[in-house]
Design a protein around this nucleic acid. Structure first.
Lengths: 169, 169
DNA sequence: AAGTCAATGTTATATTATAACATTAATTTA
DNA sequence: TAAATTAATGTTATAATATAACATTGACTT
């Protein structure tokens, strides 16, 4: 039987969507990853990942520390940064350089260089999958530079915010 | 008479080149810009721009402050950040988010969203002009997100460093 | 039970950045 | 030209982000 391919919309993060599904899919992948690689899925790691998954907005390390402290976890800076490093290494989180903030990965499970669309009104972020975002460089440059990693962050206004603005007028 | 178009090489910043020409061209453009817009070309602004133009490496704000202090300028943080803001606004400098550092613009004179190639060996940076770097997003995303600004930073190894590495072996 | 190692805890400090207000110097205007 | 205005610079204080270094805990190994 042919598997039906459901085209996931890149910009869904900006709209109402089945977020419970987002959450559960990512959390399941995280469990699976840790199990397979024999990495420890500790309460701290789970909690931080859970916080990142809450909505599609980046969170600063110190915000995370606040939330951890409210939940009874230790909350000195290295606590947050270490777990964030772990999540990033494992491909389950990214840093948004523009905001010094962190976000759950939308296509978790392997290291990759993401492209982010960042709405400056609602602060939500959508991570595009590689096939929807391609950086075309000219031949000469490509031949002279060996790319290892790319940071692509697009800042603008998402459709939802744009529509709200239109309605307001 | 037809003007001869000299194709400027994007990756020249990584190699030996006529840097005096780089420097002078940029400095001249800076003078012209300030004159035309009636902005004050103060010793402080000149000095900071000069520092950024020294080579094609990004410099941190506190490095700039050190150098300013050595040259007898006042050197508390706002001094650097204010001038950097000015240079960025005027399109003569950019921030490299990845390194919280600043670099002289290679195509100065107007605000634009640059693409940087950053060599992680020699720390040099080349800024690509827009025609040599294009971000292709899928139609759907484009229609749903109004882009205002983009941050594109490519990290890797430049040809010069790559060759050095090869020779070493 | 002792040894090992990964994870977490802790203390201290480094690095990057901004807010708020004071002073100076250039320019405009009375 | 003197007063008024404004832009630029100077200053003090502090906020926000991040890491180094070492201690403790707890799980797993042997």
């Amino acid at each position: 039987m042919k598997k039906i391919q459901i085209k996931k919309e890149v910009s869904k993060n900006f709209k109402k969507h089945n977020h419970k599904l987002c959450y559960e899919t990512s959390m399941k992948a995280f469990h699976k990853n840790c199990l397979e690689k024999n990495l420890k899925l500790t309460p701290l790691r789970l909690k931080v990942f859970e916080l990142l998954l809450k909505d599609h907005r980046p969170i600063g390390a110190y915000q995370i520390l606040d939330m951890l402290s409210k939940e009874g976890f230790s909350s000195t800076p290295p606590i947050a940064y270490r777990v964030l490093d772990f999540l990033i290494e494992q491909g389950f989180a990214h840093k948004i350089e523009r905001f010094n903030a962190f976000i759950a990965c939308s296509h978790p499970g392997s290291k990759h260089s993401p492209t982010f669309m960042i709405c400056r009104k609602c602060d939500k972020v959508a991570e595009m999958c590689e096939k929807d975002s391609r950086l075309k460089l000219d031949k000469k440059s490509l031949s002279e530079f060996q790319i290892e990693e790319s940071i692509i962050e697009i800042i603008g206004i998402c459709k939802s915010c744009n529509q709200l603005e239109t309605i307001k007028c």
